[in-house]
Design a binder for these strands. Structure first.
Lengths: 204, 204
DNA sequence: GTCTATATATTGATAGAC
DNA sequence: GTCTATCAATATATAGAC
């Protein structure tokens, strides 16, 4: 495959991400994607003969990106530093790659038909491994004893929320508060939530 | 409108909830809904002449259900009891009404085109009111000082996650752990998260 | 490789018999 | 109120000229 071909494919995939993440697979048309990509529909179909093939490519690339932040959590690091860094990385992904997050959420809502195998095998294996790391930290008394799986779920949920439910977050915060400060506020809030919860500090 | 008519409409709305929540608006066909409802397509269209009208009805009913749990949080109650109850109600909704949760998530992912007005007005007003309640509790030193808006967001995110990302949760927990214990585990975990975070208890 | 024109399939909605 | 038959619009995909 030539360099030109690869570039064209990348333009199409970028346009498809834009459209699929906003309207879902069925809600998106090749016409829309072609327009965003700046080419005609038959031209787009010259590079990707099937609409499904575009989606498939996006999904397989997505999963690699998706597993990366958790993989970086190191067993030999300081527990609080590692967890805080993980939360930060996930929140940065929600801020910088909201379309990927929404594409993933769309797939989940439909029962993950295209990636259920990778979820059940690769993702499960990774989470099992990191849950074991968390359990070790608990055994060592470095973090509170709790359910490591649900801990990971809650980090996913709280961070991805800022991408997937972005409209709602902005509407609720209103014009002033929604204006770009929300990710910094979220970072501060989530750090406190996961590290201390709502228990008030004794006055000092 | 007769009783029969109302019943038929309810059957259609129930079927539409099933289909829309799983495939999204554009991904659902009237044929599918009609089949689930156990009637022919023209017959269904006799009661709802437009596909959009079915969706509109579901959305307006949904929003009422959706605001209820937060409305019940009372300023004159004990803060920890009120917050814990709220989390519990939201988690029960994720468990008992996952389709409504997914319908809502679908709408959010698309930028809430049909309900943005209610989000910006009614939901915002309700959250503003409850954020004020939380702020008062913080001023009184009853709960830790934190961002009340992001606190509410994180309760939404963590509880709805068990409905919206159900496939993933079950796949990661595996056959044994995914088997029905997950909501009880989540309830225990979330209670600890919000009340104490990960700070380990001093040994004693 | 890119275009115009078009084939084919799906689907929302209607017509008209019963 | 419910059905069969069908229309009209949309959307995926292909044919064939350039």
């Amino acid at each position: 495959m030539t360099r030109i071909q690869r570039e064209k494919q990348d333009i199409i995939l970028e346009a498809a991400l834009e459209v699929f993440s906003a309207h879902g697979f069925r809600g998106s048309t090749i016409d829309q994607i072609a327009e965003v990509a700046g080419m005609s529909k038959p031209n787009l179909l010259y590079y990707f003969p099937k609409k499904e093939e575009i989606h498939r490519r996006l999904m397989s690339e997505l999963l690699v990106t998706w597993l990366a932040p958790l993989q970086e959590m190191r067993a030999d690091g300081d527990p609080f530093v590692e967890i805080r860094s993980y939360i930060r990385r996930k929140l940065e992904m929600a801020r910088d790659f909201p379309r990927q997050s929404r594409l993933f959420a769309n797939e989940m809502l439909r029962g993950a038909p295209h990636i259920i195998d990778m979820i059940e095998v690769d993702l499960k294996a990774l989470v099992d491994e990191k849950a074991q790391v968390l359990l070790t930290w608990m055994d060592e008394g470095k973090i509170a004893r709790t359910d490591p799986y649900h801990l990971i779920f809650s980090i996913w949920a709280t961070t991805q929320h800022y991408a997937d439910f972005d409209v709602q977050v902005r509407a609720v915060l209103g014009k002033g508060r929604g204006g770009e400060g929300r990710f910094e506020d979220a970072a501060r809030y989530l750090e406190q939530l996961f590290l201390h919860g709502l228990t008030p500090k004794p006055k000092g």
